[in-house]
Design a protein around this nucleic acid. Structure first.
Lengths: 265, 265
DNA sequence: CGGAATGTTGACCACTGTCAAGAGCGGTGG
DNA sequence: CCACCGCTCTTGACAGTGGTCAACATTCCG
């Protein structure tokens, strides 16, 4: 199947005609090397992109040169959706490995969306799922320890690579350096190194040579508190119904409970 | 002006007819108390919301009861855009103070967007600006110290409240507890307390009694490395053109430069 | 065969979390 | 009117996660 309709398919079924429409829109591909900026903060790009091959990320550079990666792009990901309707990007997109991308003119993409509502909805869902992932990313960095964070991120990457059909079971290509992971996790490369070693010695993963293999998926998920719901994939497990308690009360009750249990012995 | 068109106006000019359309769609308001969930993770709500009065936030609860706030909603904010096209929310929205909200049926909102492309684009921009804010939030939490983070968040809040017309110069209502800020910043309440005190003693802010007053806007902005571009507001200052250097090279060069400077004395 | 990028390790320490207690303040009910 | 209660803010002591710095090992590539 053509890469553009395939990239949007997870976000809503498309008719044959809609697929053909998309195929006509996206015709130019581009090969770029590693560490190459595909989209730059402040630009007003005329194209958005589909990753055909290679890995990329969205990142923001701080004044002191530190880099925060805010999203990863794996093959089949659509990048640059903000440029469809905003005239100034607020974060950059760069490759992490050599990559091949499909360039899709924004104007044509918008025209398609206006012409076919279902296609427009698919684009909406793609953007909203990405936004949901960002919010999950915030919670990951804001609340979890290095070990938990790393486990969680690896879970996300494996899930997405599996969904993209790039994994062999729970093993997948993951040509990211530990420094890349560090910039994504808000940690230093040294700390990521130690954390990865611990994940290895806990027999949760194998990671090296551009390949990640999960040895114990359940344990890795639990370690990272990973819930795939935000990826837009149907949850594999049954969701437990949340108690209908006001949030602050719930937390208070929980703390109370823990205090009581602590007094128990 | 009616609150719904006013909420969307910053994201694209609307014709009189489009404004009237929106007024007809949004007719029911709702008063709720503090700490009340407006939208819950896992739900498929039939309405999205416009904040008329009061403060709210989007948050995710972790398994251990910790809360990460991923976005604040101030009066005039639109909440719940994801429910327009996703059938399962992945984060909750709850009030932080008593609040009044306008309930907008999702189906009607979608119909409006389909009927009027300009209106649809305004919705797109609203969602994309929110997504951009999430990414900035990630960078804030991932890379900055408590002091910088807090300064940055306060800058964002003041900017948005000013844009909403709720500020008097650089003073604005901000009825958030230090615990709320802590949950937003990925810090503890104790640490936020100490940080706020430092911001006060540095004569950057006054904060208390539900009011925030910025005493030194430039210094606060510098302290937080705040760049308002992502809020969709035209940047107040001239943007400096970024050097056309590959990111990794740029960082390497920067580190090199710092090392050299460190050797200087 | 070098040289650069990446991964690994150790020593040290600072920022931030944790725990605990107390102060101030406003609301509520007797 | 006052006492009480809960929430928020504040402060101190202490601990620990993770950062910094620096060196070395290893792999990859031209």
């Amino acid at each position: 199947m053509h890469p553009l309709p395939r990239a949007l398919q997870p976000f809503g079924p498309l008719s044959d005609e809609e697929q053909r429409l998309l195929e006509e829109v996206a015709v130019t591909t581009q090969r770029v090397g590693a560490d190459h900026d595909l989209l730059s903060e402040g630009d007003n790009p005329s194209h958005c992109l589909v990753m055909l091959d290679g890995f990329a990320c969205d990142y923001r550079l701080l004044a002191d040169g530190r880099r925060q990666i805010v999203a990863f792009h794996v093959p089949t990901s659509v990048c640059g959706l903000p440029s469809l309707f905003l005239n100034r990007l607020t974060c950059s997109t760069g490759t992490l490995t050599p990559a091949t991308v499909l360039r899709v003119p924004c104007a044509a993409m918008r025209a398609c969306a206006e012409h076919s509502p279902r296609l427009g909805e698919a684009l909406w869902r793609a953007a909203l799922v990405e936004a949901a992932a960002s919010r999950a990313w915030i919670a990951n960095i804001g609340q979890r320890t290095a070990y938990q964070r790393t486990a969680n991120l690896l879970c996300e990457l494996v899930s997405r690579l599996r969904a993209a059909g790039l994994a062999d079971g729970f093993a997948c290509p993951l040509p990211l350096t530990q420094a890349d992971l560090a910039d994504a996790l808000g940690l230093t490369a040294v700390q990521v190194n130690r954390t990865v070693q611990q994940l290895r010695s806990d027999e949760l993963i194998l990671f090296g040579g551009g390949v990640l293999a999960v040895r114990n998926w359940r344990a890795l998920r639990r370690a990272g508190g990973f819930d795939p719901a935000y990826l837009g994939q149907p949850a594999a497990t049954t969701r437990r119904k949340k108690a209908a308690v006001a949030p602050r009360d719930a937390r208070r009750a929980l703390r109370e409970e823990q205090r009581v249990q602590a007094q128990r012995p």
